[in-house]
């Protein structure tokens, strides 16, 4: 049997993994976006306690390997009575880990907005909330979007880490097939190609956005 015949055999199982990879990626990006935005806004308020909490959290998260964070959530949390499925633990772990990077990205976007505009918005009676919604976010999006695309690609690739806590996503499926067939070459070539196929469109989209907004 040649490569393609064997590949055709493995593909259905791998595609089950792809589905879970996409689910983990999607929800991790969602969670990291929401949390990252919260951290960034906390810093923006300049209220010392909020800034402190946000900074402290981001510093701690960035200092611990993602895989250790995943182990912590999946293996340690049950000991204090928090039982999560592998899937839930994976999404929460990746989401929290990446929220630290998202926060930095969002903070940079928010701080790039000229202070004068914010003062002008305040001077026509806008509340902080309205300033955020009408002045800062619409402009910050342009700045934040290209690096945001890169973050999605990184989350997609790092979703393979949840294979270590038994989520049967693409990498895990690959390991299982390889272990039973000893056909490492075909299996991991396929796994690599699939990741590449998933990330390439995002790479091109990110490049396109970078070009478009650097001209503006």
């Amino acid at each position: 049997m040649g490569f393609w015949e064997r590949a055709a055999d493995y593909l259905p199982l791998l595609m089950e993994g792809v589905w879970l990879t996409l689910v983990v990626t999607f929800f991790s990006v969602l969670l990291s976006t929401l949390l990252g935005f919260v951290w960034a806004v906390m810093t923006w308020t300049r209220i010392p306690i909020l800034v402190g909490i946000s900074r402290g959290f981001v510093t701690i998260i960035r200092g611990i390997p993602i895989i250790v964070q995943l182990f912590y959530i999946y293996f340690v949390m049950p000991e204090i009575g928090i039982n999560l499925s592998a899937m839930q633990a994976g999404i929460i772990g990746l989401g929290i880990a990446y929220s630290a990077y998202q926060a930095e990205n969002f903070r940079a976007g928010i701080e790039a907005i000229d202070k004068g505009q914010i003062e002008a918005a305040h001077s026509i009676g806008m509340t902080d909330q309205l300033v955020m919604r009408r002045v800062i976010i619409p402009q910050a999006i342009r700045i934040v979007l290209p690096p945001y695309g890169n973050t999605i690609i990184m989350v997609l690739k790092d979703s393979s880490l949840v294979s270590t806590i038994t989520v049967a996503e693409l990498t895990r499926q690959g390991q299982l097939i390889a272990a039973s067939t000893f056909d490492n070459m075909t299996v991991f070539t396929l796994v690599a190609l699939i990741y590449l196929a998933l990330s390439l469109p995002l790479t091109f989209l990110t490049r396109h956005l970078e070009k478009r907004y650097s001209q503006a």
Binding site: D114, M126, V135
Partner: peptide, 20 residues
């Protein structure tokens, strides 16, 4: 302060228009 600011507007040296 927000309601006071609706009663007193301000024009700035550097215009501070919303560029978007």
């Amino acid at each position: 302060i927000t309601s006071i600011r609706t009663q007193v507007s301000m024009v700035f040296q550097r215009f501070n228009l919303f560029p978007h």
